[in-house]
Design a protein around this nucleic acid. Structure first.
Length: 260
DNA sequence: AGTACCACCTGACGGC
DNA sequence: TGCCGTCAGGTGGTAC
């Protein structure tokens, strides 16, 4: 689930619940989500410190620790941040939780364990090593024009490639292409200037609107494709029917009548 | 360079 | 009720 808007919501939630509070305890319920660190290492680093700032690049959330290091969270398909209080039992699928002075707790929950938690020294080096492109919200129209020109594949795979731009996944790529009225299978080099302009505008508009609505599909406009991801249902514009196809092993949806 | 396919995990759902 | 196959919004490796 978690794409850029979801992770931005997690970031704000985490910041609200945890910044500038002393970390008293670190619990690791499942060490398989830890990358390049151990339960002991994580606890040693975090206990007695505080979290001072938060940031995000694409789908990765980073947190600046008071000792100068960074905690980096990735949510895979099923991860999220769940704030609470220490008296409450941890979430069923909590893998790591931090307890703060004053009684608050934040759980890193990840049912399918496809996400990770790591501790790193240098955030820029981390993103380089991950080969993460610029955050999708930082991509300018001319950047996008250049990316479309140099990418040899389909437009949907360009949007979803995290080294090209970071943050867009399967769901939001379909939404952006629906709103930009572009066939997801189109080759990116074929896009004319007007199409690149629409794509850029919708890239930003979809992501920022989703953030404003707390990345909650139920709160997103009915004119969006997001709640009509079913083969054969009428498209939100009433022009045609939503179609399902496979794109790189992923289930993708679009409206052949609207998207060219 | 880009794509297809499998794997990683767990759980939900439909069919029988 | 239970077993089985299939599917799921992310990503990495490998083979083409």
């Amino acid at each position: 689930m978690p794409e850029l808007p979801d992770v931005e919501v997690f970031r704000r939630r985490l910041a609200h619940a945890s910044l500038h509070r002393l970390i008293e305890h670190t619990h690791v319920y499942d060490k398989s989500v830890l990358r390049d660190t151990t339960a002991h290492g994580l606890s040693q680093t975090l206990s007695g410190q505080s979290l001072e700032r938060t940031g995000r690049r694409g789908k990765q959330l980073w947190v600046g620790v008071s000792d100068g290091r960074f905690l980096v969270l990735h949510f895979g398909m099923t991860g999220f941040v769940a704030p609470g209080v220490v008296e409450d039992p941890p979430h069923k699928h909590a893998r790591v939780s931090l307890e703060f002075a004053g009684g608050r707790r934040v759980d890193f929950v990840d049912q399918r364990k496809l996400g990770f938690v790591t501790l790193i020294e240098d955030i820029d080096e981390h993103f380089r090593r991950e080969e993460l492109g610029p955050d999708a919200l930082d991509v300018s129209r001319s950047d996008l024009r250049e990316l479309c020109r140099s990418w040899r594949g389909g437009i949907k795979s360009l949007l979803m490639d995290q080294s090209t731009m970071a943050g867009v996944g399967n769901i939001y790529s379909d939404e952006i292409l629906f709103q930009a009225r572009l066939d997801p299978r189109r080759c990116s080099t074929d896009l004319d200037e007007a199409s690149v302009g629409r794509l850029h505008r919708r890239l930003h508009r979809v992501l920022t609107t989703a953030i404003d609505r707390h990345a909650d599909p139920a709160q997103l406009p009915a004119s969006w494709l997001i709640q009509r991801r079913v083969d054969g249902v009428p498209c939100p514009r009433g022009n045609g029917e939503v179609r399902h196809f496979r794109s790189g092993g992923r289930g993708a949806f679009f409206c052949p009548a609207c998207q060219r």
